[in-house]
Amino acid sequence: MNMMNFTRIVLKNLFSKPATRNYPAQPKEFFARTRGHVEIEIQACIFCGLCSKKCPTGAITVERGEKKWSIERFGCIQCGYCVESCPKKCLCMCPPYPQPEAQKPTEAYVQPELEPIEKSEKLDRAEQ
């Protein structure tokens, strides 16, 4: 009798859909909270440097003078500490996960020049 236990499971599996996904033809559906990679809305960034200070692995570099925010994609551990500490909430963790690569790239984002009035406003806020 006991031998029939697993036979039932086997038969059920034989006639049901596979539990796996046909990768890569069928892409993975991510959840809203999935911590995939860090994205920055560079327009809103004030280059305060908090994210680079908080980053446990030191993957983020902020150059205030050049208005440049860069991240080593493979140094990032997707912990979300930078997102949490950002005062302007211009960082977010978004799907998908980082893709495999042959090199370890550093991605840099430079803030384009702003209109003069807006720019001075921004600088004031950054100094506070």
């Binding site: 959840f31 909270r33 999935t34 911590r35 997707q78 979300g80 963790m93």
Partner: peptide
Amino acid sequence: EMSTGGRVI
């Protein structure tokens, strides 16, 4: 993953 955002960590 749905509740915390990570599967393992």
